[in-house]
Amino acid sequence: MNKIKVSFKVNNKDYEIETTPLRRLLDILREDLKLMGTKEGCGEGECGACSVLIDGELSLACITPATQLEGKEILTIEGISDKDGEPSYIQKAFIDKGAVQCGFCTPGFVMATHKYIKDGGSNDETKIKEALSGNFCRCTGYAKIVDGVKEAIVRHNDKEAK
């Protein structure tokens, strides 16, 4: 495969890498940038474990090829933690509501929740479920994840009110 140079930002840091055009963003994050928070579940765009934000849109790193990254701004789970690696309010809300069991799907769910709240998502359960519809969890049965999202919305609104 021909090699290409691509420049993009990950969590506000600039990168320029040389790679093959169809190399997956997931591999670039995990192997080149050593950002291991983004997980590979199914590897074919079904499960949402590798969800990241690309230019603000929730996207799947396992089916995003390098060729499509030029000039893009990527946000991963590492980028939404508070300074010094403290868990963000979403992650804390998930922990407090028991939304994490084995934890493998959690980064994807946290990214989907981040996107939902950023877009002004409400406490409406149907809307929350729609926003999480691309993410699979095999442990929790989803009820506690929905509770975690609701709790995160409450904490977000408290933070905004202050």
Binding site: G45, S51, S59, G134
Partner: peptide, 12 residues
């Protein structure tokens, strides 16, 4: 169109 994949697929 809402039945296509899930939220993540619909964004791409």
């Amino acid at each position: 169109s809402k039945l296509i994949g899930g939220y993540t697929i619909q964004g791409m």
